[in-house]
Design a protein around this nucleic acid. Structure first.
Lengths: 176, 176
DNA sequence: CACAATTAAGTTGTGTGCAACTAAATGGCC
DNA sequence: GGCCATTTAGTTGCACACAACTTAATTGTG
């Protein structure tokens, strides 16, 4: 919910604030833009390349991510999809409805737990995997990075995400 | 590869496809998810931390980026804002309208070029800068990274974005 | 000067992403 | 068995992000 107060500064609590104060006051806003902004920009640039490549498949980028999970794990409840992709039902429900309308997945209430909805690829959705298999190579090639560099970047980003999640969690302890 | 199928194969043209074929077919879809997904996740994690921190200021993350540009450069036409932030008018127009409604910026048609709209911070918008000055430190601290690591990550991400943009450009040569 | 091409904002429509809420089912606990 | 807290999807509302389009102003060219 993160709807809480913010006594401001809580995010620093419990974290080592080992940032050297060698950077002049004035520079902080510029520096900051570089950090957050370069990530934001990279994410959107990635999105753009995926958009072009996935157009043939009729998928958006988040829809592709969902299909990746389904191809790997088969029938999966919405809840677990959300855990894999870090998305909640507010995002997944309409997305899955579109995938179902496109004939790529089927949704049906679990028999054992009527709260849960199982999502599984239709034959068409499963068949799409073959055509999707060339996507990764094209993406890697578009990055211009070697596999080693990609692995390294991946590790850094995961560490970053972990730290950011931990910091945000300090604020809103009760969600997802 | 890159043989027949897609007319979209242009994305590979002119790039060295120096990806070693040591990874088995089956693994590609998993690997791929790791690259794109970790970036996607990191971007959203950043967004989450910013959302929490910026709530005090009444700004969303993209609105904060716009204010950063305005604080640094003063009066700026919408067009230039878009260049700085890599956003088009479809995103900026409603965003700026909200910032104007919040009393943080003013928009007015340029006298010399009636097509252009100049955006500049109001006194309230300018005053917000002071309160925003603590944001970067809190963000850096939330990442758990040193400034050196951040600089390094920043360089990699910029390189990545450049390569991805170049690849996407090959596909849709006529835009933005 | 006239007129086509270009440029800058804005609008419309679609698809996320997420907070806040609702509804239904389940599991504990007495 | 009855009741309440929890869990799971779904819905609503808001804010990007971007493609495609519209409108208005400017520029370039003959």
């Amino acid at each position: 919910m993160c709807a809480t107060k913010w006594p401001a500064g809580a995010i620093l609590d419990g974290m080592s604030t080992q940032v050297p104060q060698t950077v002049p006051q004035e520079e902080w806003l510029r520096l900051d833009r570089q950090i957050c902004f370069s990530l934001h920009a990279a994410s959107r640039a990635f999105n753009g390349v995926y958009r072009v490549i996935l157009k043939d498949l009729g998928l958006t980028y988040p829809q592709y991510l969902v299909m990746l999970v389904l191809w790997e794990h088969g029938e999966t409840p919405v809840k677990r999809l959300g855990e894999h992709l870090r998305l909640d039902s507010g995002t997944l429900s309409p997305l899955l409805k579109r995938l179902e309308a496109a004939g790529l997945v089927r949704r049906e209430r679990s028999a054992r737990d009527e709260r849960s909805v199982e999502v599984r690829p239709t034959p068409e959705g499963a068949a799409l995997r073959e055509r999707a298999e060339e996507v990764p190579r094209r993406i890697v090639s578009a990055t211009g990075f070697t596999l080693e560099e990609i692995g390294d970047l991946h590790a850094r980003l995961d560490r970053l995400t972990g730290a950011l999640d931990a910091a945000a969690l300090q604020e809103s302890p009760g969600r997802r």
